[in-house]
Amino acid sequence: PREAYIVTIEKGKPGQTVTWYQLRADHPKPDSLISEHPTAQEAMDAKKRYED
């Protein structure tokens, strides 16, 4: 089974940042970016789909 994890990042100019959620996995390479999402819920949904 595949495993993934969610990383929170800040995008934008200082003082005007927006939080994004990255879905990452250690396949095919360590810390590979799988997808980016504007909400934590979307990231969790993507994580479930990826791991299923």
Rank of each mutant, 00 (worst) to 15 (best):
Q41I: 11
R2C: 13
E36T: 07
K48D: 07
P14R: 08
A46D: 02
P38S: 10
T17M: 12
Q16S: 12
V18H: 10
E3V: 15
T17I: 11
Q41Y: 07
V7N: 04
A25K: 08
S35K: 01
H27L: 08
D52K: 13
D52M: 15
H37C: 02
P1I: 14
E10I: 12
K47S: 02
P38R: 14
T17L: 13
A46Q: 03
L23Y: 01
T17W: 11
S32C: 07
P14W: 07
Q41P: 06
A4T: 08
Y5D: 01
A43E: 00
G12S: 05
Q41H: 09
E3F: 15
R49G: 05
R24N: 02
V18W: 07
S35G: 03
R2Y: 12
D45M: 11
M44S: 08
K48T: 11
E36I: 07
E36K: 02
V18C: 10
A25H: 05
I34S: 00
T19F: 11
I34P: 00
E51V: 08
R2E: 06
P28T: 06
E3G: 14
M44W: 13
L33R: 03
Q22L: 03
G12K: 04
K11N: 04
D26S: 14
L23K: 01
D31N: 15
T39E: 04
M44R: 11
Q16P: 09
Q16H: 12
W20S: 05
K47P: 00
P30H: 09
E51K: 07
G12C: 05
I34A: 01
I9Q: 04
I9H: 04
D31K: 10
E36F: 03
Q22E: 11
G12F: 04
P1W: 13
A25F: 04
K47Y: 05
P38Q: 13
V7T: 09
M44D: 07
T39F: 04
R2V: 11
K29F: 14
G15R: 03
Y5N: 03
L33Q: 03
Y21L: 01
P14K: 10
I9T: 07
G12E: 04
T19M: 09
A4G: 08
R49Q: 10
H37T: 01
D31I: 03
E42Y: 03
T39L: 03
D26A: 14
P1T: 13
K29E: 14
Y21W: 15
Q22R: 00
Q22A: 04
K47L: 13
A43G: 02
Q16G: 10
P30W: 08
R24S: 02
T39V: 04
D26W: 08
L23E: 01
D26H: 13
H37K: 01
R2S: 08
A46V: 02
K13I: 14
Y5W: 15
Y50T: 02
P30F: 10
K48N: 09
P28D: 08
E42K: 05
H37N: 01
A46T: 02
I9M: 07
V18N: 08
Q16Y: 11
A43T: 02
P14Q: 11
V7F: 05
P30Y: 09
H27I: 12
I34V: 09
I34T: 01
H27F: 15
D52F: 12
D45Y: 08
H27E: 12
V7G: 03
L33H: 03
D45V: 11
P30R: 10
Y50K: 02
A4C: 15
E3S: 15
E42T: 04
L23P: 00
Q41D: 10
Q22G: 02
S35D: 01
R2F: 12
I34G: 00
P14M: 09
I6F: 03
S35N: 02
S35A: 02
A43C: 06
Q16R: 11
A40S: 09
T19S: 06
M44T: 07
I34D: 00
A40M: 15
Y5L: 03
V18D: 13
E36L: 04
Y50I: 05
Y50C: 03
S35P: 00
S32M: 09
T8W: 07
A43L: 01
I6Q: 00
H27W: 15
A40P: 08
L23C: 03
Y21A: 00
Q16C: 15
E42R: 04
P1Y: 14
W20R: 05
S35R: 00
I9A: 05
A4W: 09
M44I: 12
W20T: 06
E36S: 05
S32Y: 11
L33K: 03
P28S: 06
Q16K: 13
A4H: 06
T17S: 11
E3P: 10
T17G: 08
K29R: 13
G15K: 05
K48E: 09
T39Q: 03
A46H: 04
L33D: 01
D52Y: 12
V18G: 06
A25M: 06
L23S: 00
P28K: 08
I9N: 03
V7R: 10
A4Q: 02
H37I: 00
Q41K: 13
K11F: 07
V18F: 06
E42H: 05
R2L: 12
T8C: 13
L33G: 01
K47V: 03
E10G: 05
L23T: 02
A46M: 04
S35M: 01
R49M: 11
K13L: 14
Y5P: 00
Q22N: 01
A40I: 15
K13M: 14
Y50V: 04
A4K: 01
T8E: 14
D45W: 10
K47E: 02
T17D: 05
R49C: 09
D31S: 12
Y21D: 02
P14L: 10
K13Y: 12
L33A: 04
